[in-house]
Design a protein around this nucleic acid. Structure first.
Length: 303
DNA sequence: CGTGGCCCCTGTGGGC
DNA sequence: TGCCCACAGGGGCCAC
């Protein structure tokens, strides 16, 4: 579900609701959406196949007793930082959401609620609940002992998409023979770009999604980076793309889908040239592009 | 080593 | 109406 603009929208809406609140209760309904430092490395799906039951999660590791001092984001990852130096890293996957509806307000959905936090304001009054919900469970939560652990995790990712430069893209992907779209989806190259914004960014930059990353010129990398930054910034201002069920922490939809020029429009007319948009599979993901505005490249062709 | 293929899940919408 | 299939905004692991 969420890419950078959606996660940033969740971050902002969550920050306004939980910053400065103290966690007075934690309920873990599904242990297997949580990874602690003691758990074996890897994704949540792999852990679920383990036959031995993992250890109970210490509620303090999920910030019980902590005051939330920061709501942070890098790429598509979200983090809550507590005053104890502990941190909780949340990845939303395809269908994850974090909701904090406020005291008395009802949640939009009561199923697939995997982790629930009870919050109190500084003056002791109830601030309602914060919940992690994720029907497909491709997302999950990492507990981290301190801010250093969070910094190290985020250092493994590429630069955040809102600030990425052409030089950074070229350094991280310029030597690769794979399709540029695959490179943009690789979170070690740039953090925050997913299937929608990869297609939209490449359309805006006039680059074919299957162009070999290694074939791009410096000027083209600059163009891709500039278009991505602009696109992601515009999408943040519109509070993210709501296609079906994405909502911010208050349950509100975003309007960034109106920025979409190619995503979901295969076979329709290109907004720029009027020709029919092509669609196919690139990097195992449905991909839409304009064959005229994003011309195919041939070995030896000059740009 | 880099890379493509496969897998992890549930829900939904379209065609029959 | 119901069934079945394809597909969905993500990413980790494992053969090559």
């Amino acid at each position: 579900m969420p890419e950078l603009p959606e996660v940033e929208t969740v971050r902002r809406s969550l920050e306004s609701r939980v910053l400065g609140c103290t966690v007075s209760g934690v309920i873990v309904r599904r242990r297997d959406v949580i990874a602690t430092p003691d758990d074996p490395p890897g994704g949540f799906g792999r852990q679920r196949r383990l036959t031995r039951a993992p250890k109970r999660v210490e509620k303090a590791d999920l910030l019980l007793g902590d005051t939330i001092e920061g709501v942070l984001r890098h790429g598509k990852q979200l983090a809550l930082a507590g005053n104890s130096e502990r941190a909780v890293l949340i990845h939303l996957g395809m269908t994850g959401e974090v909701m904090a509806p406020g005291p008395g307000a009802r949640l939009r959905a009561a199923d697939h609620l995997h982790v629930l936090w009870t919050l109190r304001r500084g003056d002791g009054a109830s601030a309602g609940r914060m919940v992690f919900r994720d029907p497909r469970r491709f997302g999950g939560i990492w507990t981290l002992p301190d801010r250093g652990a969070l910094d190290r995790r985020w250092a493994e990712l590429g630069p955040d998409g809102l600030a990425v430069t052409g030089q950074q893209l070229r350094e991280r992907a310029g030597g690769s023979a794979r399709a540029i779209k695959a490179s943009l989806l690789d979170q070690r190259v740039v953090a925050g770009v997913g299937n929608i914004y990869a297609d939209e960014g490449l359309f805006r930059a006039g680059i074919h999604p299957e162009a070999r990353a290694g074939d791009l010129t410096s000027q083209e990398w600059d163009r891709v980076a500039r278009e991505l930054r602009t696109l992601l910034c515009e999408a943040v201002e519109l509070r993210g793309s709501t296609l079906r069920d994405y909502r911010d922490a208050g349950g509100f939809a975003g309007d960034a889908a109106r920025l979409h020029r190619v995503y979901g429009r295969g076979g329709e007319a290109c907004v720029s040239c009027g020709n029919s948009l092509a669609s196919g599979t690139v990097a195992q993901r449905t991909t839409v592009w304009c064959p005229l505005c994003q011309p195919e490249r041939y070995p030896g062709s000059v740009d």
